[in-house]
Simulated scan of single mutants.
Amino acid sequence: MGKRLVVLLLLCWGLVAFAQSSKPFAGASLVFQWVEGTPLNSLMLQAGSYDFGGGFGARANLGIGVSPNFLELGADLLFPFGAGRLLPYGGVGGNWVGLGALNFFGVRGLAGVNYNTASDAGLFAEAVPTLYLASDATGIYGTAFGIQIRFGINYLF
Score class of each variant (00 low, 15 high):
V35H: 01
E36W: 12
T38D: 10
T38K: 13
T38M: 12
T38P: 08
N41S: 08
S42I: 13
L43A: 10
M44G: 03
L45C: 15
Q46F: 10
A47L: 09
G48D: 03
Y50P: 02
D51R: 13
D51E: 15
F52R: 03
G54N: 03
F56G: 13
G57K: 00
A58R: 03
A58Y: 05
R59T: 12
R59F: 14
G63H: 05
I64E: 15
I64R: 11
V66M: 06
P68R: 05
P68T: 03
N69A: 06
N69C: 08
N69P: 10
N69S: 15
F70H: 13
F70K: 06
L71K: 00
L71Q: 08
E72D: 07
L73W: 06
A75H: 00
A75S: 08
A75P: 01
D76T: 03
D76H: 11
L77W: 10
L77H: 05
F79A: 02
F79D: 02
F81R: 00
G84A: 11
R85Q: 06
L87E: 05
P88A: 12
P88Y: 11
Y89P: 01
V92G: 06
G93R: 02
G93E: 07
G94H: 02
V97H: 12
V97R: 09
V97Y: 14
V97F: 12
L99K: 10
L99G: 09
A101S: 00
L102W: 04
L102C: 08
N103F: 08
F104R: 03
F105N: 13
F105D: 03
F105A: 14
G106K: 04
G106E: 06
G106N: 03
V107D: 09
R108F: 01
L110Y: 13
L110W: 15
A111E: 07
G112N: 11
Y115R: 03
N116H: 15
N116E: 15
A118G: 05
A118P: 01
S119G: 11
D120Y: 09
A121M: 11
L123P: 07
L123R: 00
F124D: 06
F124C: 13
A125C: 14
A125Q: 09
E126H: 14
E126P: 02
V128K: 10
P129L: 08
T130W: 10
Y132E: 02
A134E: 01
A134N: 06
D136H: 03
D136G: 12
T138K: 14
G139P: 12
G142E: 02
A144Q: 15
F145P: 02
I147G: 08
Q148M: 00
Q148T: 13
I149C: 06
I149N: 08
I149E: 10
R150S: 02
R150F: 04
F151A: 10
F151V: 08
F151I: 01
G152D: 13
G152I: 08
G152K: 01
